[in-house]
Design a protein around this nucleic acid. Structure first.
Length: 641
RNA sequence: GCCGGAGUAGCUCAGCUGGUAGAGCGCGUCCCUUGUAAGGACGAUGUCGUGGGUUCGAGUCCCACCUCCGGCUCCA
């Protein structure tokens, strides 16, 4: 047989030759450094036979940044971890240990709980394994043999995995540890030049909270120590951009034990908040939305009708009325019931459709404590919410409108969201036919707009499927931002109808949509996205003026007055100019203007955030600032129907 | 909610095996009168998360709770 190498040359090999055989045929050095083979695009263990005629690429320790090469390194590292843990903690049961982005983990069932102090000991044991030398061997066995083997080793989790595994069963052995594993793995542990355990956490077996909680040990590994150091430095850098840290540093907001999960917005944070609110109102108006306001409190019956009571009772804040002891009220966790009631309060005609009711009001959700996270997961939520009531025929155009609107908003902030289509969950209302229709409508809208998306099976709302926009935070976690949901259920449950052209009553469809998502979360993501250096139009303080000496104070305040309506501050504190510039930089203010004897309306000393300097006249400076406002630059939707 | 960790001045943190608290930044007063990332002197910081307990004595040890952090689960 023969295979093709990356340079196009053909390599003759005996039938059944493996990737390692191919590497040996090319050279002993290559064979020694090989970590896996990419054969016809798929990643394959070096020990497995190649197929005749396929193109192959041998990855070696030199491909230290290749994601597949790192995956193998980390996967093998996870096995070393399991070996070490089994040696150090007799009686421990091993579960699963896959590579993940930036590292790997392994789940264990320890007889006695361990703490972070144990990690040091375990890490030392793994490093000993690496320096002692470990080689991996691979074997394929029958399902029954595998079950017998893991039963004999008293590894119940492995037995369960054998019973549910798809396809052939393969085992990998290194040292005195054999693991059920699809591979691929390294030849030996030599390429693991840097190994570090990074964390300890509980994790449910098979990700189900009804199952036993196991102990998960996280770690990472690299082909060089420098790469590990660089990774740790990147983590440290990321922490500097964390919105929780920047929020305090830049005096945007704080969180308090007095009201867990509910941010206290400081004046500077409110500038950002209000800027987003203005954007929301302005763009909604442009797109035919009308602003409404519905109550914060509803009686229990409302949520019985909507179906939320059955699904979310534990996450709703209940309020007791002083007089009506037998009638519970709840702080609204979402706006839809209010908008349903509003729609249903009058006779509606098809001529009026679509109704686009917009509302940004406060929602409360009693999230479990472990879920709270800075601004990204809060109990006090403010959505840029809207509900579009439309006929079946209007659905597609309305979804397009939402998608275009979303694109407009995210481009404005230079954000790139990932789109997900979340389909019918197990616990849901409505018929399969209705779900077929609503899911199909969202899918086709995405496809007709040419939007790339991933399907998130079973993650829809109980009343309908949704298109979700996701963003990643500075720690690599994914958060749902905007959402566009198509709902055939809620209008039925609230008995909503409109009069059609046929003089018959019809039930409207509803599109629930929030595009920024929650303002809290959006500001959190924005803060991290910009690293606190907000663009001019969002920056809480846009211009700071520094009078050089006492004699220049009056002129500085005068200049500030002439820069209205921009957000201008004068820093006339008794600090040196150098110190005040430093403060201005630390506060990430876009423009700092030093004003002294040398300055006049004809020539200002303007410093841009980061250090650039220029000497525009006052009118030139004003013109410059005006170009930095997106609405005056006349931004139009980039995708129009 | 679950596993692990943490909570000391406004912020970042130190405080060894129990003897009633410190640093830097920030803040205040004063001096300096400033030219593109830290001028100087002096001064005040505080229920050591909360409540119990052990002890002659608890920031330090024990218990409960609250909040936060890293994960897991959840997220209308």
């Amino acid at each position: 047989m023969q295979v093709t190498l990356p340079d196009g040359k053909a390599l003759e090999l005996p039938d059944g030759a493996t990737g390692l055989d191919a590497a040996r045929a090319i050279g002993p050095k290559l064979a020694e450094q090989a970590v896996l083979v990419r054969a016809d695009g798929r990643v394959q263990d070096l020990r497995l036979p190649l197929a005749d005629g396929e193109p192959i690429q041998i990855l070696t320790t030199r491909d230290k940044d290749d994601p597949d090469a790192l995956y193998v390194l980390r996967h093998s590292s996870a096995h070393l971890l399991a070996e070490a843990v089994r040696r150090l903690y007799p009686g421990v049961k091993v579960a699963i240990g896959p590579p993940i982005e930036n590292g790997f983990y392994y789940d264990f069932d320890f007889p006695e709980p361990i703490t972070e102090a144990d990690l040091e000991k375990i890490e030392a044991e793994v490093k000993r394994e690496i320096s002692d030398g470990r080689e991996w061997s691979r074997e394929e066995i029958s399902r029954d043999d595998a079950r017998t083997r893991f039963e004999a080793e008293q590894e119940p989790y492995k037995v369960e995995l054998v019973d549910t595994a798809q396809g052939d069963i393969s085992l990998y052995t290194q040292g005195d540890f054999t693991d059920l594993c699809r591979g691929p793995h390294l030849q030996n542990a030599k390429p693991i030049k840097a190994f570090k355990l990074t964390g300890l956490a509980g994790a449910y077996w098979r990700g189900d909270e009804h199952n036993k909680q196991l102990t998960r040990i996280y770690g990472t590994a690299f082909y060089t120590q420098d790469d590990l150091d660089a990774y740790l430095a990147r983590l440290e850098e990321a922490r500097r951009r964390d919105h929780r840290r920047l929020g305090v540093q830049l005096d945007l907001f704080h969180l308090s034990e007095h009201s867990p999960g509910s941010p206290f917005w400081h004046p500077k944070g409110m500038v950002i908040w209000n800027t987003l609110e203005e954007l929301r109102k302005r763009e909604n108006r442009r797109r035919g939305y009308v602003e409404v306001k519905t109550p914060l409190l509803y009686d229990e019956q409302t949520y019985e009708t909507s179906g939320h009571l059955a699904n979310y009772e534990d996450n709703i804040f209940w309020v007791q009325s002083h007089e009506q002891h037998d009638r519970r009220f709840a702080l609204k966790p979402m706006n839809c019931p209010g908008h349903m009631i509003l729609f249903g309060s009058q006779l509606r005609s098809y001529r009026e459709l679509p109704f686009r009711f917009a509302e940004s009001s406060t929602l409360h959700r009693d999230e479990i404590t472990g879920a709270l996270h800075g601004l990204l997961r809060v109990k006090h939520i403010t959505q840029d919410d809207a509900h579009i009531f439309c006929s079946r025929e209007q659905i597609e155009e309305e979804i397009f409108g939402c998608l275009d609107f979303a694109y407009y908003l995210y481009e404005l902030f230079d954000l790139e969201a990932r789109f997900e289509l979340s389909t019918r969950p197990e616990k849901r209302v409505g018929t399969d036919e209705e779900w077929d229709f609503t899911e199909g409508a969202l899918r086709s809208a995405l496809e007709r707009r040419g939007i790339e998306y991933v399907v998130n099976e079973g993650d829809g709302a109980f009343y309908g499927p949704k298109i979700d926009l996701h963003m990643t935070d500075v720690l690599g976690r994914s958060w749902q931002m905007g959402t566009i949901q198509l709902d055939a259920q809620m209008p039925q449950r609230f008995g909503l109808t409109f009069m059609g052209a046929d003089n018959e009553e019809h039930v409207p469809y509803v599109i629930h949509r929030a595009l920024l998502g929650s303002l809290e979360r959006f500001i959190g993501i924005l803060t991290e996205h910009y690293g606190g250096a907000f663009p001019f139009w969002i920056a809480p303080v846009q211009v700071r003026i520094l009078p050089v000496g006492e004699d220049h104070r009056e002129a500085a305040h005068d200049l500030a007055a002439r820069l209205v309506p921009y957000r201008v501050e004068v820093d006339d504190s008794a600090e040196t100019v150098g110190k005040r510039i430093r403060n201005s930089e630390i506060e990430k203010i876009p423009f700092t203007v030093v004003y002294g004897d040398a300055e006049s309306d004809d020539s200002l000393a303007v410093r841009e955030r980061g250090g650039g300097q220029s000497n525009p006249s006052l009118s030139e400076f004003r013109d410059r600032l005006a170009t930095l406002l997106p609405w005056q630059a006349g931004a139009e939707p980039s995708l129009t129907s």
